[in-house]
């Protein structure tokens, strides 16, 4: 439990927790994705985080940027799906934004989330409001901008991701494969937003 800052080792432990949890929530995400897409979202995340945790166990990066970069490469290697590439893109942006740092204050997570969101928006040619994971990231970035302990921030992230998912449930997907379903996507939580929530819960 961290009070005022998080370190390389704590970040690695967070990745380990994500990797373990992803094996469990993969089935739920596959099913949610299967309704609007090709149903591989859970596999993408469980493979990606598992590869990341294996890489980190093999070679401990010297700084926080190194952890994010290792995770980005893990997603690149293990997945060809759009969500995997977008995750890699976001992790890369977080690496660039944390270059040379060995510890960071919890409130700085907001900036990392925003950097990831901006890079993913550019790569995915989507905008906040399209009912994608970007809307979850935007909500979490806004909610984490104020100071707090890491534990507080985790709770804040979960609440923000959960509220965003519910807020967009009644809207139609405006981009990606789910867009083809148009009105049919109304009433369904976006699978990418659900993934953001599950990850926030387990990190």
């Amino acid at each position: 439990m961290i009070a005022s800052s998080f370190t390389v080792d704590e970040l690695i432990r967070a990745v380990d927790r994500l990797a373990a949890a992803a094996q469990t929530f993969a089935a739920e995400l596959n099913e949610a994705d299967g309704r609007l897409g090709d149903g591989d979202l859970g596999i993408t995340l469980s493979n990606g985080w598992r590869t990341a945790t294996q890489k980190l166990a093999g070679a401990r990066p010297a700084d926080i940027a190194g952890v994010f970069l290792t995770c980005a490469v893990a997603f690149q290697e293990s997945s060809a799906s759009s969500f995997g590439t977008l995750t890699a893109t976001g992790l890369m942006a977080a690496a660039k934004a944390s270059s040379g740092r060995t510890e960071m204050k919890p409130a700085e997570i907001s900036g990392l989330l925003r950097a990831a969101m901006d890079a993913m928006a550019r790569r995915g040619k989507a905008e906040p409001g399209d009912k994608t994971v970007l809307d979850s990231l935007a909500a979490m970035a806004a909610a984490t901008a104020s100071d707090g302990t890491a534990d507080d921030l985790r709770k804040v992230c979960v609440r923000a991701a959960s509220e965003a998912a519910e807020l967009f449930r009644s809207k139609a997907n405006r981009i990606g494969r789910a867009r083809m379903f148009g009105e049919d996507s109304i009433g369904i939580v976006d699978p990418g937003m659900l993934a953001a929530l599950r990850m926030a819960e387990s990190v």
Partner: peptide, 8 residues
């Protein structure tokens, strides 16, 4: 019908 990975 699926993209290759960026690594490939």
């Amino acid at each position: 019908f699926a993209s290759p990975s960026s690594d490939q």
